[in-house]
Amino acid sequence: MPTASLVSGLIEHSINYWLKTSGHNSSAPKKLTGKIFAIELTDLSLVLVMQINEQGLLNVYSPLEGSADCTIKTSLAGLQKLQQPEQITALIKAGEVDIDGDVSLAQQFSDWLKGSLIYWQDILASFTGDIAAHHLSEIAQQTKQLASQKSADAKRIFSHIVWDEKRLAPNPLELEEFATQVQQTRQAADRLSAKIQQLTQKIEAKS
């Protein structure tokens, strides 16, 4: 489908622009050169074929002809979850991700690509100059901090409403207290039943 070719072209140009400006292309692992990775996004019905060439830049194509060294079949959401490597096995078991071929290659490939992100301030500075870049990155950092603070606030407010105000769910402390009480009751019941058994045995022995 030519639309896929348009998408792959845009991706190729933007990634390569990024890699060239950051100079990250010169640190492409030699082991990966020429290897072919295919990412099949099931919800977009799009296959992206990626290959690192000798200049350390990417060739991105669609569709895939023949076989790839590593094929990852997943949805957009699954691709995001793949960011945490410890989740891979769980995702494969849940059927959200299907990997065919050499996983370690794909891992190295994504590590290398992600590695280029540390240069983002350099690249920004090449457009705007150092001072503006510094301010911009500071603003970005503040925004990020503010956002995480806001989200923490929102979480706290939400749990406050649920636990204390509307009492939709028990407070963790209450829950703990309840659990202790249940345990105590169970222990008392156990003691009682042991006592009863003891007494019964006594009675049986006498009669």
Binding site: P2, A4, S5, S8, G9, G34, Y61, P63, L64, E65
Partner: peptide, 16 residues
């Protein structure tokens, strides 16, 4: 024409 050519490359399935 760039997209047509790109599609052709993908369909060629060239390998190193």
């Amino acid at each position: 024409h760039r997209i047509w050519k790109r599609h052709t490359i993908a369909c060629a399935g060239a390998r190193p």
